[in-house]
Design a protein around this nucleic acid. Structure first.
Lengths: 158, 158
DNA sequence: TCGCTACTATTGAGTACGCAAGCAATAGTA
DNA sequence: TACTATTGCTTGCGTACTCAATAGTAGCGA
């Protein structure tokens, strides 16, 4: 019987669980973030990264990489944040190709505001279900899944 | 100093790890699935569910729920699979509102074909990084994150 | 049987991406 | 100095979704 092939093996179950947990967490948190502050999860992540960055500014490329978006994705996301005044652009004197994304005062205010509820909601979701130790285990295991994603065959041959 | 607010607490780190692991896994696997077989992850999941279902058929609503898509999402996804002949529609004699999605022979063939490489790729990704025990732990922890998502206040008052 | 509500499915409109192509600026090389 | 990458960013186009509105059944109670 060929449905042998279809039997869920353990890594398949892990992948399925990952898909479901991700969907459950992001749907809930992004709905809350959007309802409470009109931000998407990516918006929030961008504000957060900028808030931590020196001078509250980052190159768009670097931002894109950190929030897991493509170059065009970041352009459009920042378009939105610029339109609402949370972020503004600034030229780089050393390299005129680069355009910094800079967190405005309004943006910092928004970030603080959003953080207050968002961090609490994350905590509610995770801590209601997992102990401190389990949380740490989970984080560690998940981290192992995206390490060395592209390090395939970088060794010199022989 | 208000950047207190921005300090990554442990559940925040877990959420970030979840986002990253999900992105890493789905990007890789969906790229492979698409390159090798012209299917998205959701396409594959639909074929898989249909393949396991009795008579290889399911109501579209139920399918939507299982693959985490909205009703309209399933309609459009199935449109595509119908166009390529992997799935076809069938009426339900008992309830004329429902339209079954039925896996065709070509669809079953495609599923078997895709399974061969896809399951291997999932295994490669997970087992290269995690032991059997870790895999089981991870699956268990992830499962706890989406249990009882909507069971808020379903108890009768008092 | 009528009328109401609940359910299944589809469609229209809008959003959030990615990829590929393009432009401008820089770096590397002859 | 000229030429050829490479890099940073944006834009056009296509895709995969969602939500809200709609239509066709179904099943119920009066």
């Amino acid at each position: 019987m060929s449905s042998q092939v279809l039997i869920e093996q353990t890594s398949g179950a892990a992948f399925a669980a990952l898909l479901r947990a991700h969907a459950a967490a992001t749907r809930r948190l992004s709905a809350q973030l959007s309802a409470d502050h009109g931000l998407t999860l990516s918006d929030y992540e961008v504000l957060l990264r900028l808030g931590r960055a020196p001078d509250r500014r980052m190159r768009r490329v670097d931002l894109a990489e950190q929030v897991l978006l493509s170059a065009s994705g970041i352009t459009r996301l920042l378009d939105g944040l610029e339109r609402t005044g949370l972020v503004e652009r600034a030229a780089c004197s050393a390299d005129r190709r680069v355009v910094y994304a800079v967190l405005t005062n309004a943006g910092l205010e928004k970030l603080r505001d959003a953080s207050r509820s968002h961090l609490g909601q994350i905590d509610t979701l995770f801590r209601a279900r997992l102990s401190d130790e389990e949380l740490a285990d989970l984080t560690g295991l998940l981290a192992r899944l995206d390490e060395g994603g592209d390090e395939i065959a970088c060794d010199p041959p022989e």
